[in-house]
Amino acid sequence: MLRLTNVRKVFNAGTVNEKVALDGVSLTVNDGEFATIIGSNGAGKSTLFNCIGGSFYVDEGSVFLDDRNITYIPEYKRAVEIGRLFQDPMKGTAPHMSIEENLALAYLRASKKTSVFSRITAREREMFRERLALLNMGLEDRLKQPVGLLSGGQRQALTLLMATLVPPKILLLDEHTAALDPATADKVIELTKKIVEENHLACLMITHNMHSALEMGNRTLMMDSGRIVLDISGEERDGLTVDGLLEKFSAGVGKELDNDRILFSKVE
């Protein structure tokens, strides 16, 4: 379970460029909860992820993971329990290392039973092969090839597999399909659904696609100017259409939406 209390983050404080990126955000995400997050550019979505993941520390407020205060824990220590995917498929894998070595690293770093001198065994190599086969991309026969040879979609699918090989406590997906072509994006989205459901993960997903924001997961958050302006789940969310969501947004923010500013895609 993830809990944020009154988190505030200001960039360039005290200058003319001061920007309040997060303005007192409180949020609880339970295990098994899959929340999608929408909002225009600059609403604070990625800043929220950076605060949870530890890329930078918050100015005010606290971050809890399973009731443990992780506000001042450095990024690399949090990463044992927080899986993260970025928009850029190049960010999640080491290009000059083979598929097998990338998976080995992901597995060995997160598995509790290993020491610094652990190597992967034949059984684990077989497990990698099985998990890769589930991606349906033919990667299981390319274990020894460097990851740099894979396409963006393949790399992102591999990153997703790496982040969940040993299930984390929470998975943060920051527009992880935005750089992929539509067909590959659909495939990665399907994989995401499957992996999150199978492992019963808590998951937050940023998207600019209103359709998948409503279709995926069981909760939707909308952000604007560093605040969470809309938080819907359950029956209220089930019956909602994209137009209904936009209306709710106007009501929540108290201003009309114009397409120039919002950059949401209403279409599929």
Partner: peptide
Amino acid sequence: RATGDNEDMVKASS
């Protein structure tokens, strides 16, 4: 090896 290859990845992977 990963540290020299992709520092972004390393930071996000404990």
